[in-house]
Amino acid sequence: MDIIVEGIKQAFILLFTLDREVLGITWLSLKISGSATFLSMFIGVSVGTAVALNQFPGRRFVVSLINTGMGLPPVVVGLFVTIFLWRNGPFGFLEMLYTPTAIVIAQTVIATPIVMGISLAAIQSLPANLRLQILALGATRLQMVWILVKEARLPLLAAVMAGFGGVISEVGASMMVGGNIKGYSRVLTTATVMETGKGNFAIAMALSIILLLLAFTVNVVLTQIQQRDRPR
C-alpha cells in the first residue's frame, strides 16, 4: 500500500510545484497530438465527406479500408513511419526520424482513419433527401457540402474527439519514431513507460494523472463547442 500512497503524494507534489520537466513533457504532448488531430481533421473530414457523397467503382472496398484503418495498431504505424524515415529509406534525406515532427506524422496516420470513418458514417446517416433539399434551395455543390458538414457537426466533433483520444494515449508509435529523447521528443506516454520501467512510480503516476486530466479537459472544451449553439 505504501507504494501507492507515497506515489500519489509525490505525484501531487510534482503537479502543484509545477515541475519544469513534467510541464515541458505535457506541453509537448499537447502540441504533438493537437497538431496531429488538426491535420487528421482536415484530411479525415474532407475525404470522409467526399466518399460519403460520391458513387464510384470500388467504393465499398475503399469504405472497408477506411473502417479497417480505424483499428490500425500504433506499433504497425510506428514501424512503417520508421522505415520510411530511416536514413536510407525513401524519405531518409529529410532527417526527420526521432524528431517531434516524426511523431506528428505517425499520430496523423493513426488519427486520420478514425476521423475519416466516423465522418463518413456521420454524413451518410443524414436523410437521403436532405442533399436534394439543399440543392433545391439553390446551393452550389460547395455550399451543399458546407451545409451538410454543419448539419453533421455533432458526430463530426465526436470524430475529432475520438481521433484526439486515440493519439494522446498512444505510446508505441511515439516511442519508435520519436525515440523518447529527454527534453526533445519525450511525451507523456513514452515518459510514463520509461519511469514505470525504472520503478519511479511517483513520476509515472503524476504523468498518468496529467494524461487523464488532459484528455478530460480537451473533451470538456470540445463538448462545450459542440453544445454551444444548440438553441432552446
Partner: peptide, 8 residues
C-alpha cells in the same frame, strides 16, 4: 434552381 423551390 434559384428560381424554384421544393418541399418534400
Amino acid at each position: 434552381r434559384r428560381h424554384l423551390a421544393m418541399v418534400f
